[in-house]
Amino acid sequence: MKAILIDITRCNGCFNCQIACKDEHVDNDWAPYARPQPDLGHFWMRVNEVERGVVPKVKVSYVPKLCMQCENPACERTARDGAVYRRKDGIVIIDPEKSKGQREILKSCPYGNIFWNKELNIPQKCTFCAHLLDQGWKEPRCVEACCTGALRFGEYDQLQDTIHQRKAEILNPEFGLKPRVYYIGLPKRFVAGTVLCRKISEPLENAKVTLSNFSTRESITTHADNYGDFEFEGVEIGGKFSVLIEKVGYQTQLIDPVHTEKDVYLGEVFLLPKE
């Protein structure tokens, strides 16, 4: 079963994968695997830029997205006349002849990974470059183009250990489609701030900061660094928390509620010295 493992922590947002896919499929006809894609507007491999935080606490993650080659593909179920089929190696192919006019296939993918070709009147998507793999290529174009090792391709069995060790996730497990694309380091939320002394506006290094989860009642702690900066990363999305900031000789501050629909930068938080 072919699979792709994507390490977001290594991705530098160069977009090589997105470009290499264009290079392979624009103006190139790989029937019966895939007909050419249009010059613009299709993203069989798409790099999503995820901007997080506010000035000056900002991070960007890049999340490459391509056909998940689901074990349980919605497109195959929706298609008529066998227009979508799954190969023995797990790659899901939309037949460029049989799929003519089948707009339902386009709408069937909850990941949004299928695109409509107006000129050819067919739905199209990533094929893991099956036409190349069948000729003995080691990996699809996107993976080969990646210079930072963020993309890895291979048999699921070979990638399995790394998937488990690095706690790789799939996108939208609630869809129940059993995708074969795994992600290490998908961005969650951070809760950050900068702790300063109210009187002299100097950083309070080593101030203890505790993040408490309202629902689970779990707490984690960290300490402000030499800039007074603190950060909790990998925090649950859409959670409700409180932040407690303490330092000997200063009045404790409690900030709540802190909602993590978006990443949170609490800004400069001032502690008053105790009298």
Binding site: C14, K22, D23, D27
Partner: peptide, 19 residues
């Protein structure tokens, strides 16, 4: 370093520059 060259995205898209 790995044993390969490492094109920038504008290196890889040169076909679109030629045509």
């Amino acid at each position: 370093p790995p044993k390969r060259t490492n094109p920038a995205p504008y290196d890889l898209s040169v076909r679109r520059r030629v045509y």
